[in-house]
Amino acid sequence: MKIADLGDIKLHYRVDGDPEGAPVVFANSLGTDLRLWDQVIDLLPKQGLRYIRYDKRGHGLSECTPAPYAMGTLVRDVERLMDHLDLRDVIFVGLSIGGMIAQGLAAKRLDLVRAMVLSNTGAKIATREMWAERIAGVEAGGIEALADSVMQRWFSDTFRKTDGFHAWRNMLVRQPAEGYIGCSHAISGTDFMTPTSGLRLPTLGIAGSEDGSTPPDLVRETVDLIPGSQFHLIRGAGHLPCVEKPEEYARVLLEFIEAQAH
């Protein structure tokens, strides 16, 4: 296990693949840790590409600081992690809040990002009122109080009948409530419509047809802000298609990476 001491925060990260390969950075969703990408990375080439994953503030094995968090803080965390690891010219893959972090990082430090994948995300996700209700629910009853409704948005009916489903529910409820609340505040306060519309870099949008958190139309609307962007719909998957359909996810991701001559 690797820990980057960035001064005010210690972040857990992991590096797989070719140590000398071109870098691909992954940022995961609210309520998950870097294991979100296990199945996809297992299917990607072991030579030529280096895969860097990390647990964002308040999640996984990274430090959990007091809520609330600003989106700018989460962007700065990964910016400093990339500087710490001397990463430049990366392909950045972000899912849900990870996709918002990707947009914020590209707008702030385009020297760090060669291309990005915006998976199951939006320039703006839901409303302040919805996030206020969710935060209040976690403050009152912990993440467990929301877990079943979150699982319905995350996964298709078919996947919720599998044994593997229970591991993802456990991952959600075992995240620190303070970290979940902190990142919920960050999403609530973010609207990247204007900065994202000013971006000019290769972009792929990935959506799941059964996604109850960031429906396909939201993902398409977001990537359409960026001229020349691409969009791929994974049918039969919910908010985490890298879990439900890892083979298709890995294939589409690799095609995009190779198209960038990365």
Rank of each mutant, 00 (worst) to 15 (best):
Q175C: 12
Q175P: 02
Q175A: 06
Q175D: 00
P176T: 11
P176H: 11
A177H: 11
A177V: 05
A177K: 12
E178F: 03
E178T: 14
Y180T: 08
I181C: 09
G182Y: 00
G182S: 03
G182C: 09
C183M: 12
C183D: 09
S184A: 15
H185I: 05
H185V: 02
A186K: 00
A186N: 01
A186Q: 03
I187P: 00
G189H: 12
T190K: 10
D191Y: 12
D191R: 12
F192Q: 14
M193P: 00
M193N: 13
M193S: 15
M193Y: 11
M193H: 14
T194E: 15
T194R: 14
P195F: 03
P195Q: 06
T196V: 15
T196C: 13
T196L: 00
S197G: 15
S197M: 09
G198N: 13
L199S: 11
L199W: 10
L199E: 07
R200W: 10
P202R: 10
T203I: 04
T203H: 04
T203W: 02
I206E: 01
I206V: 14
I206K: 06
A207K: 07
G208P: 03
S209M: 07
D211N: 11
D211K: 05
G212T: 07
G212A: 11
G212Y: 07
S213V: 10
T214A: 14
T214E: 04
P215G: 08
P215N: 09
P215E: 07
P216T: 06
D217H: 13
D217R: 12
D217P: 00
L218M: 15
L218T: 12
V219D: 01
V219E: 02
R220E: 15
E221K: 14
T222R: 03
T222S: 15
T222K: 02
V223Y: 03
V223P: 01
V223H: 04
D224N: 15
L225V: 11
I226M: 10
I226D: 07
G228Q: 11
S229M: 08
Q230Y: 07
Q230N: 13
F231I: 04
F231Y: 15
H232M: 02
H232R: 13
H232P: 00
H232V: 11
H232E: 13
L233C: 09
L233I: 08
I234Q: 04
I234M: 05
G238W: 01
G238A: 10
H239E: 08
H239P: 06
L240P: 00
L240Q: 05
P241V: 05
P241I: 06
C242V: 11
C242S: 14
V243A: 08
E244L: 07
K245R: 15
K245M: 11
K245T: 08
P246D: 09
P246H: 07
P246R: 03
E247Q: 14
Y249I: 10
A250P: 05
V252E: 12
L253F: 10
L253Y: 08
L253Q: 08
L254V: 06
L254N: 04
E255H: 12
E255K: 13
E255Q: 14
E255G: 13
F256T: 07
F256Q: 08
F256A: 13
